[in-house]
């Protein structure tokens, strides 16, 4: 019974202070995210301004060098490649994902849930395994080359793996659900009477799509693009397994510095640049798409 007495006293205390009560409920999250997410990011930022020490350590001396190294054509090339691949992935998925989302949104209700679920399913399954599956298909002795040989289309295997094209394919594969889900959400809300109105007023299907459907589903287009672009910029697994050493992206550069190269400050700087790109994309999106509702859309 003492327990309930204590409980009552604690409750009474909290009842008088709503702010404290909310803090009590939220404190585990504040603690965990604060200490194990935000604080490490701060440490990483600090590291990016330190000198590299011997044997992978750091010297606590300030330097810009880790950032100025990016002027080197070698690293500029990696940055540019990362942008090119991420941008292309986003555009490809927009072109593929829009019709797909449109069709799902217009499907019979009983089919719609199943179709949606089939998009959500890969979203939650391992990227590593889904990328590995493409290795089985694309490698020199893989399924695709085997098939082409069997059909006498080729004699020598095509080198499909370890190319930029393979990375693009892998990224499009892994992130297709990220594009389709927000697009679906906005297309489903589309008021079809507006489309009928456009048709009645003589709009051809093409202009109706461009002038009515696209503007009305802008939020989904922006959200989907953001959700594809962000993880593509930071990708590591897909480019590592399908691109290899020939087509390095920022993520692979970071991994290299924290792995074999043992240059943590330089890796931190690369990682910080990556984080900055992501945050700029998010803020740009929020500004374009308009604040809080836009955040809801992404979810």
């Amino acid at each position: 019974m003492e327990n309930t007495g204590l409980r009552k006293r604690i409750l009474k205390f909290f009842n008088r202070h709503e702010n404290l009560r909310s803090f009590g409920v939220l404190s585990p999250c504040i603690f965990w995210i604060g200490i194990f997410f935000l604080l490490p990011l701060l440490f990483m930022a600090t590291y990016s301004f330190l000198e590299r020490g011997l044997y992978g350590g750091v010297n606590w001396l300030f330097t810009w060098e880790n950032y100025t190294r990016f002027v080197d054509p070698l690293y500029l090339k990696i940055l540019l490649r990362t942008f090119r691949i991420s941008f292309l992935t986003t555009v490809i998925l927009l072109i593929v994902g829009y019709p797909m989302a449109y069709r799902i949104a217009r499907a019979d209700k009983r089919w719609r849930n199943i179709l949606l679920f089939l998009v959500i399913l890969p979203f939650w399954t391992s990227d590593l395994i889904r990328t590995y599956a493409w290795m089985l298909i694309l490698r020199d002795t893989g399924l695709l080359n085997g098939l082409l040989k069997y059909l006498h289309i080729i004699r020598e295997p095509l080198s499909l793996l370890y190319t930029e094209g393979a990375i693009l394919l892998g990224l499009a594969y892994v992130y297709l659900p990220f594009m389709v889900l927000p697009l679906y959400a906005s297309i489903e809300k589309l008021d079809t009477s507006l489309l009928e109105a456009a048709e009645d007023l003589g709009a051809t299907p093409f202009w109706r799509f461009l002038k009515v459907t696209v503007p009305l589903t802008k939020s989904g287009i922006l959200a989907g693009s953001l959700l594809v672009f962000i993880p593509s910029v930071g990708v590591f697994v897909v480019s590592d397994l399908l691109g290899g050493a020939k087509a390095m992206m920022i993520g692979n550069l970071v991994q290299l510095q924290f792995g074999p190269a043992r240059n943590w400050p330089f890796g931190s700087a690369a990682s910080f640049i990556l984080m900055t790109i992501v945050l700029l994309a998010v803020f740009g999106y929020l500004k374009f798409a308009g604040g809080k509702e836009a955040l809801e859309e992404v979810r």
Binding site: L41, F43, I230, V278, V282, V298
Partner: peptide
């Protein structure tokens, strides 16, 4: 509250590799 909401959104959009290396430094 809005700031708190935004911060909770951060771990979702931060590239995994950034989370990984910042934690290893930490």
């Amino acid at each position: 509250k809005t700031v708190f909401d935004g911060i909770l959104f951060l771990p979702i959009v931060t590239p995994e590799i950034v989370v990984g290396i910042s934690l290893v430094i930490f």
